[in-house]
Amino acid sequence: MKKNRWIWITLLLSLAAVVMSVRPAEAQTPFPPVSDDEVNAVAKEMYCPVCENIPLDVCPTQACAQWRELIRLKLSEGWSEGQIKEYFANQYGDRVLEEPPRRGLHWLVYILPPTFFIIGLVIVWRVFRTSRKGAALPGAPVETISPAEESDVLRRIEEDLQRRERDS
């Protein structure tokens, strides 16, 4: 009987120890843990207006540390990278994003460079084509002539050369 009592007490104490060891751990992690690498993967594509030109993942100020913690919180709540960036852009302006968002006047950043590049290519191609034709017969477009006309041209050239030799 006494032996049974001790077994029960031991079991109850063990159970209590297990429960006590588990509960604080549950309280400390209300959200799934998010690693620094996951936070920095989002942060490296953002900039803090307080410390300009320093990516958020390496910015040492307290403001940036708070921003990184906010990213960690949002990630733990299941937000996607896009949602987090959108949230930060709405809160602090588009300038916090490394890449301008595809909306409004920002579209010019994506449209103008390739447009100018294509226009440049067309201009270069046209100049190149004109210069090639110009090299064949400078300054004029060309068309073919018959063999009879060709011999006439050659004869006139011969005569012209002979006349020049006589004059000199």
């Binding site: 064949a136 004029a140 477009p141 060309v142 068309e143 073919t144 002539i145 063999p147 011999s151």
Partner: peptide, 12 residues
């Protein structure tokens, strides 16, 4: 031998 050659025309 007698291949056609190119002739000058007005530059347009």
């Amino acid at each position: 031998m007698n291949e056609p050659v190119e002739k000058l025309t007005e530059n347009q």
